[in-house]
Design a protein around this nucleic acid. Structure first.
Lengths: 124, 124
DNA sequence: CAGTATCCATTTCGATACTG
DNA sequence: CAGTATCGAAATGGATACTG
């Protein structure tokens, strides 16, 4: 908090949480993780139906990313027709308290954000 | 967690934290909030130098958004040359515990994510 | 100093069609 | 069923130059 002169730092170092934000809060990841946490192990099509506005292409991309990061486990059953199941991993589940914390902040403060927006939009 | 049949819900409703994610974790917001929290009230140019890779255009856009959402306070001093100061608001400061929580998760689990990536990239 | 304006590159997205 | 391929639209971002 001291008023030092501005000393440049690497973009990621300017914010220690930047890396985790990229992993956990990139587009579509929270709806996917939330759905997997809420409804348990499920198939590609179920996810697709529950997250109504996502397209299969994007859903695949995001699931691959989450799988690569170890937050989601993909299980392929070589049957005909093929069956694939996705579930949240232990690592993914470890985010639950964080998401709960976020929910609490939202409940307490989202109305304030909305009020701030109304005030801002009203002036000017 | 029950295995109901997939019932479509609105995209935001598929994930209750989606709205707050948009507000708090959209691009550049965490580096900006972090810098304001870390170094206190400061001018546009200081922010620009500390967050080395951001351009003035984008910095302005994000600061406006944060101001509108009530997370940042902008103070204009009508002098010559003009002086503008930005500081984090009480609402913005209320995110500190959440960011700390995120830091803790990162410290404990980022290595696991990196390991998962190495494993994933090694196969296939 | 604190931005704007403009132009352009890149990424991301959605729609659609197709396949093992 | 669980994706992939392809295309084009759109949002976003960066570089640069300029201004009250």
């Amino acid at each position: 908090m001291a008023a030092k002169t501005a000393e440049p730092v690497a973009p990621e170092q300017a914010c220690p949480i930047a890396p985790v934000v990229d992993i956990v809060f990139s587009r579509w990841t929270t709806p996917i993780l939330w759905t997997l946490h809420e409804y348990g192990r499920q198939r590609f099509g179920e996810l697709e139906r529950r997250i109504t506005t996502i397209t299969p292409k994007v859903l695949t991309q995001r699931l691959r990313q989450l799988e690569r990061d170890g937050l989601v486990v993909r299980t392929y059953h070589p049957e005909v027709p093929p069956r694939v199941e996705y579930e949240i991993s232990d690592l993914g589940r470890s985010l639950a308290p964080l998401f709960a914390h976020l929910s609490e902040w939202a409940a307490a403060n989202l109305p304030k954000v909305e009020q701030a927006r109304r005030t801002y939009d009203a002036r000017s």
